[in-house]
């Protein structure tokens, strides 16, 4: 079994409303997969179920073959299921170095260490340097996060998730709202993610989806409509019907 992330008959209802219906989904190890769907298709709910922010009404989530349905969000992160956030949810008045040190430190189990200075542990500091270099953040490490250019903030978002050492990385609209000039950096950073990290891209932007994904899942009305190779998805009449009238360049 090479699926690293799997859901079985996952469902969530709010009151009478079914936001996620019976989703059985899998992500292969090393995947470059995209999850698309029109507004209101239930992508956000699905991601919240995967990450453990919401408990499902029924069904299960597996990570590397283990049932993680009942685990809290932070426990899932420690097992390597990590997400980025769509709108900016970084810690505005912390610096990138503090944010990265926090993420790396938590992963190394240093988060409860109250007796020593942040950064006193050398392997941690070294790793922060590596992550910062990888995402081109070396020259802004000591600035307040909310003063960074937007593109850098989005890079930090991905860098922080990367610092959690993900097996599975859920990228939620990583390039949304980024000015054209800075967009390239983000696409490059995503393309350069190590091959053993499995990536699920949740995205509206079809250019990005089709340039990145080897496989695409389409979510409509809370359920999986179809899955397949990009060319098959592009040709699928049901997908076309759903997206007809959506954004012009789709």
């Amino acid at each position: 079994m090479s699926a690293v992330l799997e859901t079985r008959a996952l469902a969530k209802s709010f009151g009478g409303l079914l936001a996620t219906r019976d989703v059985t989904f899998s992500l292969e190890k090393g995947a470059r997969q995209a999850l698309i769907g029109p507004n209101g298709a239930g992508k956000t709910t699905f991601v919240n179920l995967l990450t453990g922010v919401l408990p499902p009404s029924s069904g299960q989530v597996f990570l590397a073959g283990e049932d993680i349905t009942s685990l809290r969000p932070e426990a899932r992160v420690r097992r390597g299921l990590v997400r980025t956030f769509q709108i900016n949810q970084l810690f505005a008045d912390l610096t990138p170095i503090e944010t990265l040190a926090l993420a790396v430190g938590e992963r190394l189990g240093q988060g409860k260490e109250w007796w020593r200075r942040l950064g006193a542990a050398e392997p941690m500091a070294r790793e922060v340097d590596e992550v910062a270099a990888r995402f081109g953040l070396g020259d802004v490490l000591d600035m307040r996060t909310d003063t960074l250019p937007y593109g850098k903030q989005r890079l930090l978002e991905i860098a922080v998730a990367f610092a959690c050492a993900p097996q599975v990385l859920l990228l939620d609209e990583p390039a949304a709202g980024v000015p054209e000039a800075e967009r390239r950096d983000i696409l490059d950073a995503i393309a350069a993610l190590p091959a053993d990290v499995s990536v699920l891209l949740i995205e509206h932007d079809m250019d990005l989806v089709f340039s990145f994904a080897k496989r695409i899942s389409v979510l409509v009305d809370g359920g999986l409509l179809v899955e397949g190779e990009p060319s098959a998805i592009a040709a699928d009449p049901r997908v076309r019907a759903v997206y007809l009238g959506e954004s012009g360049h789709g």
């Binding site: 990450t51 922010v53 809290r72 969000p73 932070e74 992160v77 420690r78 990590v82 997400r83 956030f85 949810q89 970084l90 810690f91 505005a92 008045d93 912390l94 503090e98 944010t99 926090l102 993420a103 938590e106 992963r107 988060g111 922080v160 959690c164």
Partner: peptide, 15 residues
């Protein structure tokens, strides 16, 4: 400090 600013985000970093 991270929890105070955004506890959901903090737990998404494994806190």
């Amino acid at each position: 400090m991270a929890i105070r600013r955004n506890s959901l985000r903090a737990s998404a970093l494994g806190v």
